[in-house]
């Protein structure tokens, strides 16, 4: 397997007056192409900070990120990033939001409308292409954001607690859809969550983070695919792993 992302000794500090908040200290990780890696950690442990650095949106205080062997200098459409909060343009319809990355890439009008409509249908938003974000429920906005991110055609995808604010029913539904989409495309996904079950259900590998982004556990998930949000969660191996991860999180809290 080839390495797509190499994270080397990343440290991120936020300086304010004479105090520096250290959000991430000496964090290293290697991600293989085509894998679905879930990153599990309690809130405030630096997950979003890590993804901001991986996406190139923010610059590390020290350390570096290699993407396909090249050091990162800024955001690139080769890495898709679904941020924790919604960032759909409120003045654009769903269709025009999804078209936006294609517009920036300079694709022509008919082409981008065709691609966007296809993506909107793949995330289950048929019939809402002409709605504005404020007219959609939270779950539908997430789907639209997902469609927009898929429109870049990025090979590496970062997702920051994408289903965190949704009701349990909808979350299960979207988890299923994400797995289905991923099985068709085989992209590399780094998926951040604070939910143990979600981490186990989706990932090939779970990385458990403690304070300041210390890696508490790096565990392969040997549960066969296809997985199903309703059935896999009662599998005995799943329950075993759940306890293991829960323990690791507890250990981390005690340190």
């Amino acid at each position: 397997m080839t390495t797509v992302l190499e994270i080397e000794h990343l440290t991120k500090e936020f300086q304010r007056d004479d105090v520096a908040t250290v959000a991430l200290r000496d964090f290293s990780l290697t991600i293989e192409r085509g894998t679905f890696v879930t990153v599990l950690g309690r809130s405030g442990c630096g997950k979003s900070t890590m993804l901001n650095l991986l996406s190139g949106l923010s610059k590390p205080t020290s350390g570096r990120v290699l993407h396909n062997g090249d050091a990162h200098t800024g955001p690139t459409p080769e890495i898709g990033y679904l941020t924790q909060s919604d960032t759909l343009m409120p003045w654009r319809t769903v269709l025009r939001n999804v078209e936006m990355p294609l517009e920036i890439a300079g694709r022509d009008k008919t082409d981008r409308t065709r691609v966007a409509r296809d993506l909107i249908s793949r995330v289950g938003l048929d019939g809402f292409a002409d709605s504005y974000p404020r007219e959609l429920s939270g779950g539908m906005r997430r789907r639209a954001s997902l469609a927009r991110m898929l429109a870049y055609g990025a090979e590496t995808i970062l997702m920051d607690e994408p289903f965190g604010a949704l009701d349990a029913q909808l979350r299960t539904e979207l988890q299923g859809e994400l797995l289905r989409l991923w099985s068709q495309t085989g992209q590399t996904i780094i998926f951040v969550t604070h939910d143990i079950d979600e981490a186990l259900l989706l990932g090939d590998r779970v990385v458990v983070l403690g304070p300041l982004g210390t890696v508490l556990l790096d565990q392969e998930i040997d549960i066969p695919r296809p997985r199903d949000p309703d059935r896999t969660t009662v599998d005995s191996r799943f329950i075993e792993l759940h306890l293991e991860l829960a323990n690791a999180l507890k250990e981390g809290a005690r340190q």
């Binding site: 996406s55 949106l57 800024g74 955001p75 459409p77 941020t83 960032t87 936006m100 920036i104 870049y152």
Partner: peptide
Amino acid sequence: VERGLIDAVRLMGGTKRD
């Protein structure tokens, strides 16, 4: 202007002009 919206365009590879 919300910072997140600007970042969204930067992530798409948008220029300062975009």
